[in-house]
């Protein structure tokens, strides 16, 4: 399978061999264990686990909240990237550096910090409470945690594309009488769209599997705010390895299908706008 067609440099066998062995030992063989283990249940047993009402409720919550968080991040990520590339304002470099905070801050820290902020006597929670809005220990809290951890993805995928954008296109549009909004809508946005989709897909994939930042603020109420990764942990704690594995496999399959769909959409928009994604 891995036949070299060009070997100018030394180190082909060493580097490719090492890469494959390490990849297999750490990633591929253990991941195969999940797939094989889930086969122990048989098709009927597998279906029984993954179609249980609390599991189905967790899929709706995990995938629904991840999609919504991805959309919010697409909108605000685009705005933030636009402001960082196109405008100059005091404190810009600080904002630019701190955008990556969700990548650097451990998820457990994010989780307890958000819970403290949004609980009923927290800095933000007490004001929302008086308005009748409950965030901590509800699905809304999960959404806030997922928006936090997904924020950098769209900003960092859109930013380089915006930076490389030449002003000629916008000049041409303006000289042909397009308004600023028309130029944005019909000239700039189609160019940015594949990058926005990529960022959205990355944020979504991260949010679906997220655990640390969510479990503290979610409250983990069965059927209401239990995310799918938590169910895997619950099953493991009950020594139900088959059940945990079945949920894990179903989650991997759904994520894979959704990412393939997003990739397809990306290829389609790229073709339509005649640009490479």
């Amino acid at each position: 399978m891995f036949a070299a067609s060009r070997r100018v440099f030394p180190g082909f066998n060493l580097s490719v061999g090492y890469t494959l062995v390490y990849l297999s030992l750490i990633v591929l063989i253990p991941l195969a264990a999940v797939i094989i283990k889930s086969g122990n249940l048989g098709l009927a047993g597998f279906w029984e686990v993954v179609s249980a009402p609390n599991v189905v409720a967790s899929y709706k919550l995990s995938f629904g909240a991840a999609l919504l968080a991805g959309l919010i991040n697409a909108l605000f990520g685009l705005t933030l990237a636009w402001v960082l590339v196109r405008y100059t304002f005091p404190g810009k470099r600080l904002v630019d550096a701190l955008v990556d905070l969700p990548f650097a801050l451990p998820t457990a820290v994010t989780g307890i910090a958000l819970t403290a902020l949004y609980s009923q006597n927290g800095w933000v929670g007490q004001y929302l409470e008086s308005l009748g809005i409950k965030v901590a220990f509800t699905p809304l809290g999960i959404l806030i945690a997922l928006v936090f951890i997904g924020l950098p993805f769209v900003v960092r995928t859109v930013q380089p594309v915006l930076e490389d954008l030449e002003t000629e296109l916008e000049e041409a549009a303006a000289s042909l009488g397009a308004s600023r909004w028309q130029t944005f809508r019909h000239v700039v946005l189609p160019i940015l769209f594949p990058a926005i989709l990529t960022g959205f897909a990355l944020a979504f994939a991260r949010a679906v599997g997220e655990y640390g930042s969510v479990i503290f603020i979610a409250g983990n109420i069965p059927m209401v705010s239990e995310i799918t990764p938590l169910l895997i942990i619950t099953k493991l704690e009950q020594y139900d390895y088959e059940g945990a594995t079945a949920i894990a496999v179903s989650m991997l399959v759904i994520s894979l299908l959704l990412l393939l769909a997003i990739n397809g959409l990306q290829a389609w928009t790229a073709k339509r706008t005649g640009r490479r994604a």
């Binding site: 999940v34 599997g209 997220e210 990764p229 895997i232 942990i233 493991l236 894990a248 991997l252």
Partner: peptide, 11 residues
């Protein structure tokens, strides 16, 4: 990167 950390532990 696209596998949930929980699944990473499970394997």
């Amino acid at each position: 990167f696209s596998v949930s950390p929980v699944i990473a532990g499970l394997i």
